[in-house]
């Protein structure tokens, strides 16, 4: 019997990333199907962020190829992968952005529209209408003129999700969005991701070392350790594995706040 056809969003083939003779990531073959919600879990230093940066095209593999919608995106000049950049929504770790700058919340969220514009085109009224509607969606519209730095960590994460969504992405990548958030904010974040996944045609890749951040709609988990995929499959399958038990305890899926 033939396997069902899967439309791939991203394909990784024979990937090797090495720094100073140390293997950061080694993946023989992996497909993220279009429209899937995948969670990438693993301990600190497992290679999760390297994996995500590879998918974003921020780092190039020493060996292997990355495809996005069947087109090669690795080792290509930036002007050849413009379509890919416009399709990405990326929420980086806190250390990756300069929250101290005096940008207003509206300015930060509107930055997400620039990929949809020409290089020198300025944002127009329709861009700000889309920005404002996403601010309202995240419950931040009343704070739109506040500086980004004056917001709490949870509000900043919501703003970054809004920033990603104003660009109308097809592939949403989140790197440890719940770090430093309290359980209430984590719950809100889970609900937002569930809602976005249900409402928009998105492929989502969520990286987290905390299981309580993985939303219900995330049906597939990949467990990474020392740069290699140890196991992948349904949430239940992965969390039953020995390493998952060692990392997250005997009943790893019950640590979530209600």
């Amino acid at each position: 019997m033939s396997e069902p056809m899967i439309t791939p969003c991203t394909n990784l083939t024979d990937i090797l990333i090495r720094r100073h003779r140390h293997v950061l990531l080694e993946i023989e073959r992996l497909t993220l199907p279009a429209g899937s919600f995948t969670g990438l879990i693993g301990p600190n230093g497992a290679g999760k962020t390297t994996f995500l940066k590879l998918c974003c095209g921020l780092i190039q593999p020493n060996r292997g190829t990355v495809y996005f919608e069947n087109q090669r995106i690795s080792s290509r000049p930036f002007w050849r992968i413009a379509h890919y950049r416009r399709s990405i929504g990326y929420i980086p770790q806190q250390a990756e952005y300069n929250a101290h700058l005096p940008f207003t919340l509206r300015e930060v969220v509107a930055m997400g529209r620039r990929g949809r514009k020409g290089l020198t085109a300025s944002l127009d009224r329709s861009d700000y209408e889309i920005t404002d509607s996403w601010l309202a969606d995240m419950g931040l519209y009343d704070r739109r003129n506040q500086t980004f730095r004056s917001l709490s960590g949870g509000q900043q994460q919501k703003a970054l999700i809004a920033r990603a969504m104003v660009g109308q992405p097809r592939f949403l990548l989140l790197d440890e969005p719940g770090s430093n958030l309290d359980p209430t904010w984590k719950k809100q974040l889970r609900e937002i991701l569930d809602r976005l996944y249900a409402a928009y045609p998105l492929t989502i890749l969520l990286i987290s070392h905390e299981l309580d951040l993985i939303p219900d709609s995330c049906r597939r988990l990949i467990l990474l350790d020392q740069g290699r995929i140890l196991t992948e499959g349904s949430r239940r399958q992965v969390l039953r594995s020995d390493l998952a038990r060692r990392l997250y305890g005997d009943r790893p899926d019950t640590g979530r706040e209600a």
Binding site: L58, R85, R86, P92, E96, M111, R114, K117, T120, S122
Partner: peptide
Amino acid sequence: ALFNQELKAILFSRSLAEATGPY
């Protein structure tokens, strides 16, 4: 002035700007 949006995005986060901005 011409590349105002792009420069602001780079200022906010260079990796985020490079991941999602073609230029």
